[in-house]
């Protein structure tokens, strides 16, 4: 016995590629904008962190410089050198004539005939 064929109702939804593409094209700039915003914000924070690290490094270097300057000042101060001379750590030894290499010949004083071997220009003000 032949049964009458029952036509199944059409339940599938066709994928409307065209509509999706249109929607995507419309939303793409918004998506790109959003992603760019996030990317730039990340970059901004990464750069901020780099700035912070660099500033810290500069600060530490400056502090180290100041510490070293203070140490150099302390070690080369008149008091420290005098203490070292007193303890014999350093001493002033006369230089013998044959050890002196004269870069310029001794100058003759304009007022007198005295030969000047040294001229402390800094003190003459």
């Amino acid at each position: 016995m032949n049964m009458p064929a029952i036509e199944a109702p059409c339940r599938h939804n066709p994928v409307q590629i065209g509509k999706i593409l249109r929607m995507f094209l419309c939303l793409a700039p918004l998506l790109a904008g959003g992603l760019s915003f996030v990317y730039l914000k990340n970059q901004q924070f990464a750069l901020g962190e780099q700035i912070r690290q660099t500033e810290r490094a500069i600060r530490e270097t400056r502090a180290e410089n100041e510490v070293l300057l203070a140490r150099v000042t302390s070690l080369t101060s008149r008091r420290a050198l005098q203490e070292r001379v007193a303890t014999g750590f350093i001493s002033v030894v006369p230089v013998s004539g044959d050890k002196i290499a004269r870069l310029t010949p001794p100058a003759q004083d304009t007022d007198t005939t005295a030969l000047r071997t040294a001229f402390n220009g800094a003190s003459l003000q």
Binding site: A63, E66, V67, A70, T73, R78, A122, Q125
Partner: peptide, 12 residues
């Protein structure tokens, strides 16, 4: 001093 010798400095 007048020749630039440091008489007072800062230690961080």
């Amino acid at each position: 001093d007048r020749n630039g010798e440091i008489l007072a400095a800062n230690l961080p």
